[in-house]
């Protein structure tokens, strides 16, 4: 059985275990996400005096993909703890556990597809052929998150307090990224957002799903970030892999 198939099977069983006592399973997260989008949508609609048709889909797609990025990075800190027994008893490449983790988070994202469809139909958003690119965008962002998770896993296994630091950084990034606010609110300082890597990941999905203009720059930045993360993860792996088992 190849490693991807194995990781896929394990991710399925992980989800099954987590929601074993629930009839609707991971859709609980979807319901919670929908309620968050509705509440924030209504509040920020009043605060920023935006039209609901314009702001609600923007906020919805932004929050869904932010939660994917956020939970993938944050839960990567727990890969070592959650799989401790397996690490200590099976000779399986660590990449396999990271792949399982990213696949599991992607499964949860797929459950949010219901909200995306609701938004598209409720606000009568025209679906254009470029939506096909969403699969490629999803694969490329999953690859990026795989390497980011790998770095987070190695470092947080070695340093216990890194999880708290990452949690704070992610909260900080949430407010600095145009998720609940729009880039144009920054008027002459809009260029600052271009330095935020999370903006570019989310922007690609927004442009495909909400028919916003797609910037080649965002695509190039995501690919460049992935390449940098591959390089950094290899360095971290070389430095920490041999003795990592003793830190788990």
């Amino acid at each position: 059985m190849n490693n991807f198939k194995k990781a896929f099977q394990l991710a399925k069983l992980d989800i099954k275990e987590r929601y074993i006592r629930s009839i609707i399973g991971p859709f609980w997260i979807t319901i919670s996400m929908l309620l968050t989008i509705i509440c924030l949508g209504v509040v920020f609609n009043f605060l920023f005096k935006q039209s609901l048709e314009d702001f609600f889909p923007y906020l919805g797609i932004g929050l869904i993909f932010w939660s994917y990025i956020n939970s993938t990075i944050l839960e990567a800190c727990k890969i070592g703890q959650e799989n401790r027994g397996n690490f200590k008893n099976y000779n399986i490449n660590y990449d396999f556990y990271i792949a399982k983790h990213v696949i599991k988070q992607t499964f949860v994202l797929f459950h949010h597809l219901v909200i995306i469809l609701l938004i598209i139909f409720w606000f009568n958003i025209k679906i254009e052929p470029k939506i096909i690119l969403i699969s490629i965008s999803l694969i490329s962002s999953s690859v990026l998150l795989f390497y980011l998770s790998k770095i987070v896993f190695y470092l947080s296994t070695r340093f216990n307090d890194l999880e708290q630091i990452i949690m704070s950084l992610l909260t900080f990034s949430f407010y600095l990224t145009p998720i609940i606010w729009k880039k144009k609110f920054l008027s002459e300082y809009q260029y600052l957002v271009d330095y935020n890597p999370f903006y570019h990941i989310i922007h690609i999905f927004r442009s495909l799903l909400l028919n916003e203009p797609m910037y080649l720059k965002s695509l190039v930045i995501v690919i460049a970030m992935t390449l940098v993360l591959i390089l950094v993860s290899k360095i971290v792996e070389m430095k920490l892999k041999k003795q990592l088992i003793f830190w788990i």
């Binding site: 059985m1 099954k16 074993i20 027994g85 008893n89």
Partner: peptide
């Protein structure tokens, strides 16, 4: 390598699911 028997097991799943789960770690072909 058979060492700690409970490695790769989930207490909340059924015995059947645990066969599927543990066999993945033990590299039993699907």
């Amino acid at each position: 390598l058979i060492s700690e028997l409970s490695a790769g097991i989930s207490e909340n799943l059924t015995g059947y699911d645990n066969i599927l789960l543990k066999s993945i770690y033990l590299d039993l072909d699907l």
